[in-house]
Design a protein around this nucleic acid. Structure first.
Lengths: 229, 229
DNA sequence: ATCAAATCGCGAACGACGTTTGCAGTTTAC
DNA sequence: GTAAACTGCAAACGTCGTTCGCGATTTGAT
């Protein structure tokens, strides 16, 4: 009965608490870090779809099945990739000034991270994959928000919402803006056509991200309950 | 050289402008509408992963390959599903009151749609799949925003951002909140632990969606350029 | 009326994927 | 010294999206 190891079996712990290897057998040829590195390089270069077990294994000069000595599933690999990317958000800025300024700065860092690793947009919102680095980032945000008077749950949700909004901006910048109107009859959408054929109004906001994040965070964390409507 | 039909071949038009069938051969047993309906039923019941060509075909009592008489790819099917779901946003509310009230109402409708079809969260942000119903919805939003003085591009982006924020709320409601902290050492995250062990502050905002959307839309569409800082 | 072109349903097949399994060899704990 | 644990690897399994070839059916043009 071999393979009762930590990396296989139907009922295993999450990858974060599973030891990379036991103490018996030969020294492993590869490592989780090397595998994750190869996977990230592949994802950066050719997109998340290029991150197949076979492709990652080939980049390391081995076979697909061999990876399962180090991970227990492709989902584990994506979790590890995510957490490793989040590590790039370090070092965290010192929270000296206004907490709002610091939070906006953190949001900008997130935006840059999404820009550097666009595949993050496709994996970061999965319920699994909350690794130590992600928790450390949350922890840091909570620290920054310490002077704010509101419940921890509200802070948590504000952080998540900020991350979400940043991801929306990142998606916009990621070039998805190339809508193709081929094959549709635009005449059926009069207001759309009219809006775009009219001389455009004032130029678009310069710093949309900044203003959006400020409004969002103050709205979520500071605002008083409004009167009944 | 058969199969030069509109539903196959490497260089084909988008699905929206492709006729459902030609005029020659026998009457088709199924229809795009029936296929899309079966696919949506499957996705509603068992999630998007259950929408395989084989499963959809089986629900219609046929084989997977037969579906390619009606669509040219699974992506086409997802596009059709999306557009069909967006159709449920009709009828659009009359824009009589304040445009902001109407927009918030439209956002609430979107939120309800995401709740009824959670798989929309996984497919709506793909660059393809902008079908006639989605365009009609945009058109309606542009109509509502007619009294607002700003560029059409800014309006377009505000609508997209509203949709995105609504999707974030929908994802939260979709039960993804079940974080599993199994296998992580919480002692390494002092501010997180401290924030959650402290007595919680004021109760979370009652109508978070409403306030967030109002803040977002006014911020994106109305605000004056701020002074340099 | 005739015939070729287009389209139908269908089942088998292809290639890629994630994952499992079995096996021969290697290292360690007892 | 021996047994347990671990290694790498290649082959295989099942599922997936998609393609292909077939005989049968309907249409448009002659």
């Amino acid at each position: 009965m071999s393979d009762t190891a930590a990396n296989s079996g139907p009922d295993r712990q999450p990858i974060w608490s599973r030891p990379e290897r036991g103490s018996r057998g030969p020294a492993p040829t590869h490592s989780r870090d090397a595998i994750v590195g190869a996977a990230i390089a592949l994802a950066d270069a050719e997109g998340l779809a290029a991150v197949s077990m076979r492709a990652v294994a080939a980049a390391l000069g081995t076979g697909a099945g061999s990876l399962y000595r180090y991970l227990s599933s492709r989902d584990d690999l994506l979790d590890l990739m995510t957490d490793r990317a989040v590590r790039e958000l370090r070092p965290y800025p010192q929270a000296e000034g206004d907490w709002l300024d610091t939070m906006v700065l953190l949001g900008r860092r997130q935006l840059a991270l999404f820009g550097a690793h666009p595949w993050l947009l496709d994996v970061f919102h999965r319920p699994s994959g909350i690794g130590p680095e992600t928790l450390a980032w949350f922890d840091n945000c909570i620290r920054v928000l310490e002077p704010v008077r509101c419940s921890a749950v509200a802070k948590f949700e504000a952080i998540a919402m900020m991350t979400g909004v940043v991801s929306l901006f990142a998606r916009r910048e990621a070039g998805a803006g190339a809508f193709s109107f081929a094959g549709v009859d635009l005449a059926a959408y009069p207001h759309l056509v009219a809006a775009f054929s009219r001389p455009s109004g004032p130029a678009p906001r310069a710093d949309l991200v900044e203003r959006t994040l400020r409004g969002l965070l103050t709205g979520l964390l500071l605002a008083e309950p409004t009167e009944a409507g």
